[in-house]
Simulated assay, not measured.
Amino acid sequence: MISVLLAEDVQMVRGALETLLNLEPDIEVVASVATGGEIVPAVNKNRPDVAVLDIDLPGMDGLSAAMMIHESSPATRTLILTSLGRPGTLRRALNARVNGFILKDSPVNELADAIRGVAVGRRVIDTQLALAAWDGDECPLTPRELEVLRHAADGASATEIAEVLFLSVGTVRNYLTTASAKLDARNRIDAVRIARTSGWL
């Protein structure tokens, strides 16, 4: 029996997935959570074989949670569900060392097969997503530029970003200006939009 933790913020979707997965003869949902902050405690308590995580969750996104799971419960495999079939999103998932990555609108039997695959150590990636990532553009931003832009996307000012990252305000502004220039954006808001659309944030 493959034990599964399910993280999905939409209650109706979470309930439907839990019911459908529990109909599979070899899969049991042992925990079900609605927010990113609940994931790691639930994993540590239940030690599931596979954590099925929505990429967009309140509090903490699925990719950040996956990285924390790999630290706190290395035996638990991670499978990301997303409605965003963007090449940059898949690259971020691979960088987070997730074991599987499939689209939310996949048939439930494909989700069940993906769970079985990652449970035995295979990496399972939706074929369409893999091809899109192969053809997609590489992110032109450095990790630091992405980090600064991510804070800006959350609404932080240059001063607030500087405090969090232990940088000078001038350095933060330089990173934002450089990121905007690389993305051919009109301003930081446009840079955030472009980076999000590309799946880099």
Rank of each mutant, 00 (worst) to 15 (best):
M1C: 00
I2R: 01
S3W: 10
L6F: 02
E8V: 02
E8G: 03
D9Q: 05
D9M: 04
V10C: 09
V10E: 15
Q11S: 14
R14N: 04
G15E: 13
A16I: 13
L17Y: 07
E18A: 15
L20A: 12
N22K: 13
P25N: 00
D26S: 13
V29S: 05
A31V: 13
S32R: 14
S32G: 11
S32Q: 14
G36F: 07
G36K: 10
G37Q: 09
E38R: 01
I39G: 01
V40T: 13
A42C: 10
A42W: 08
V43E: 01
N46M: 13
N46Y: 09
N46H: 15
P48H: 08
V50L: 02
L53V: 02
D54F: 10
D56L: 14
D56S: 13
D56E: 14
P58G: 13
P58C: 11
D61N: 15
G62D: 01
S64R: 11
A65E: 01
I69F: 07
I69S: 04
I69Y: 06
E71Y: 07
S72R: 13
S73N: 06
I80E: 01
T82C: 08
T82E: 02
S83Y: 05
S83M: 11
G85F: 09
G85M: 12
R86I: 12
R86K: 15
G88R: 03
T89E: 14
T89D: 14
L90D: 06
R92V: 08
L94R: 10
N95I: 12
V98K: 01
N99Q: 10
N99A: 11
G100V: 11
G100E: 06
G100S: 08
K104H: 10
S106R: 15
S106H: 15
V108A: 09
L111Q: 06
L111G: 06
A112L: 10
D113Y: 10
D113R: 14
V120Q: 04
G121I: 11
G121Q: 11
D126Y: 11
Q128H: 08
L129P: 00
L129W: 00
A132Y: 06
A132W: 05
A133I: 05
D135G: 07
G136Q: 13
G136F: 14
C139W: 01
P140V: 02
L141R: 04
V148F: 03
L149R: 01
L149I: 04
R150S: 14
A153N: 06
D154T: 00
A156V: 07
A156I: 08
S157H: 05
A158R: 06
E160M: 07
I161T: 07
I161R: 03
V164G: 05
F166C: 12
S168F: 02
N174D: 15
T178I: 10
T178H: 10
A179D: 02
A179T: 00
A179L: 04
A181W: 11
A181R: 15
R188G: 08
R188I: 15
R188M: 14
R188L: 10
I189H: 14
A191I: 08
A191W: 03
V192G: 03
I194E: 07
A195E: 03
L201K: 05
L201R: 02
L201G: 05
